[in-house]
Write a protein that binds this DNA or RNA. Structure first.
Length: 543
RNA sequence: GGCCCCAUGGUCAAGCGGUUAAGACACCACCCUUUCACGGUGGUAUCAUGGGUUCGAAUCCCGUUGGGGUCACCA
């Protein structure tokens, strides 16, 4: 068979010498040990926690080694393309502080561009053509129907499905048959002529999983689709070679196609990058767990976290604790150190699937938010509210001084210990709502109406917003004593039958009357922030 | 189903042949407190299973079971 002529017929035209690409995309000039990693999403526009998970790992590995992180868009499948997707990905990752050095819509060094695979079609074709010339790739004219019939046949016979060995019909087409099909204008794909034998198993070192066994590939996989665009596998080999990727961290769903990639790199004569296959983020689904899926788990999209007002740093810290088990301890010991100074290690990444735990994220969020100053919290909440909170709550930020007082109180700033009541921006807004309007009553008074009115009346008589905490509380005690409640907790505990209740119950009445809630920060301070007029108005409304 | 990966409390997990099997989250109890979602103290709870190897196994080997992934002209 004249492969050269066949190649020309299949992919007509002049293509550069292969060595041209080697000089066009030279090895990167980086320090020894510097890793080049990448994020290579398809432009579906949907980005979830799993993507962020992998992104942080890639980012850390690249940057702590003095290397490069780049963004490549795998747009070989038109069906996956969504307008604005790349922008969305970029924005989402920027929110979580993932910085790319180069890539699609990023700018930076253009040496290894373009970053969209569709724009790299010529490179792929040049190599496919070369493979055909070498007799290592061939055209396949099988239709979808034929292929699925083959699959059924194989399934029925309990044989391995796929296009390989004796089932690779078009692999053995004669020259005449090929040209006849071509002359008839039949569409074709280009397949790799595999030389592997799955009986042969090899040890393979995975940067995350450790030593694993892989079998040789014997599938004549499609490398160039009938539209002239390569499949993922082929594009991966070409791109990661010419973009000079040193380490590929990707989801473990790729483990199964690793044999294909190994053969491709070998056939092309490329040195292959190292690989690390990370476990996927799982979700509890009934009694079992499964990989997070974009279809079923919209609540795990990154957008969800922004809508809820999760603090970006908290999400990042949580991802890091899942990514590297020793991170949590390190962070505890080095609370002030920048996250970048943590020594990230691919080998420390978990081998088994990790269940996403919202409780843990919430705990970390409280912790992170409690470290902010009142001003920082103000900015965080306002930024969030401006974008996501369409309620009247926006007006809360009009009086900056008042809001700062509110935040100072709620966060326990100035006290012995910071409080950790804020989880997210949306939750915080609800938490502080009663400062701006008496919230709908969530808790019933636990006393009868007459008692309530008597207590409120007694308190109102003596109320003076200028009182300090002690004086204020003394007055609460007076109101308690005047109405049959024990002013001292000890007395009440010693002899509960003698009283209607304790000073705590009186405080609760005042609290509910003032705020509509049974749980709030220090009530005296709240009344001061509200001011005399507002406080009196609220209490009188409850008479 | 074939192949591959994985297996310590409810969750994330430390552990690399000898430990009272860390820690964090969640949960429970008590304490502090005018309430509390804050804080403090304590507690419940884990080596999937059966065989080996070894003086000794969570740790090494094999089988079983369970979970996950993958078997496209999708990535």
């Amino acid at each position: 068979m004249n492969y050269k002529a066949l190649a020309e017929r299949l992919l007509p035209g002049e293509y550069p010498e292969l060595s041209y690409y080697e000089t066009l995309y030279p090895p990167r000039d980086l320090e020894k040990g510097a890793e080049v990693t990448r994020l290579a999403p398809s432009p579906t526009g949907f980005i979830h926690l799993g993507n962020l998970f992998a992104a942080i790992a890639n980012e850390r590995i690249a940057h702590q080694s003095g290397g490069i992180l780049y963004l490549r868009i795998e747009d070989t499948d038109l069906k996956r393309k969504v307008d604005g997707a790349v922008e969305a990905v970029k924005n989402a990752l920027r929110y979580f502080d993932i910085k790319f050095d180069e890539g699609a819509e990023i700018g930076g060094d253009e040496t290894y561009a373009p970053w969209y695979q569709r724009q790299r079609a010529e490179i792929y074709r040049a190599f496919v053509k070369h493979l055909i010339e070498e007799g290592r790739a061939y055209p396949c004219f099988c239709t979808e129907e034929e292929l699925s019939a083959l699959r059924e046949e194989q399934t029925a016979k309990k044989e391995i499905t796929g296009y390989y060995g004796k089932y690779a019909k078009c692999r053995n087409l004669t020259e005449e048959e090929i040209y006849k099909n071509l002359d008839e204008g039949k569409p074709f794909v280009i397949r790799l002529k595999s030389m592997g034998n799955p009986e042969n198993k090899h040890k393979f070192h995975d940067e995350i999983k450790g030593d694993i066994t892989v079998i040789e590939n014997d599938q004549d996989v499609v490398i160039l689709k009938s539209d002239g665009i390569p499949t993922y596998h082929f594009a991966h080999a070409i791109d990661d070679h010419f973009m000079r990727t040193t380490l590929v961290i990707r989801g473990e769903e790729w483990l199964a196609s690793l044999p294909i990639h190994i053969e491709l790199f070998e056939t092309l004569g490329f040195e292959r990058p190292r690989y690390g296959h990370n476990c996927s983020l799982m979700k509890q689904d009934g009694s079992s767990r499964r990989k997070l899926s974009k279809r079923k788990d919209p609540e795990l999209s990154l957008e969800f976290y922004r809508k809820e007002g999760y603090f970006a740093r908290a999400v990042k810290v949580y991802m890091l604790t899942l990514l590297n088990s020793n991170f949590e301890e390190w962070y505890r010991k080095n609370p002030e150190a920048p996250l970048e100074s943590f020594k990230f290690s691919a080998g420390k990444m978990s081998k088994s699937g990790t269940l996403f735990d919202l409780d843990k994220l919430n705990d970390i969020s409280k912790d992170e938010l409690s470290k902010l100053s009142a001003e920082e919290m103000f900015d965080f909440l306002k930024t969030w509210a401006d974008e996501y909170d369409t309620d009247a709550q926006k007006g809360y930020f009009a009086d900056r001084e008042k809001m700062l007082k509110v935040l100072t109180l709620c966060m326990g700033i100035g006290g012995k210990k910071r409080r950790k009541d804020f989880t997210t921006a949306s939750q915080a807004m609800k938490f502080i709502q009663f400062f701006f309007e008496r919230t709908p009553q969530e808790d019933e008074y636990r006393v009868d109406g007459a008692t309530k009115r008597a207590v409120l009346t007694a308190f109102l008589k003596t109320f003076d917003p200028a009182d300090d905490g002690q004086t204020w509380f003394a007055k609460v005690k007076e109101a308690a004593a005047a109405n049959g409640f024990a002013p001292e907790m000890k007395d009440y505990k010693a002899n509960p039958e003698a009283y209607k209740g304790s000073v705590a119950d009186v405080a609760e009445i005042l609290r509910i009357a003032t705020t509509g809630r049974a749980n709030t920060p220090d009530l005296c301070t709240i009344q001061q922030i509200l001011g005399e007029k507002e406080t009196r108005a609220r209490l009188e409304a409850q008479l």
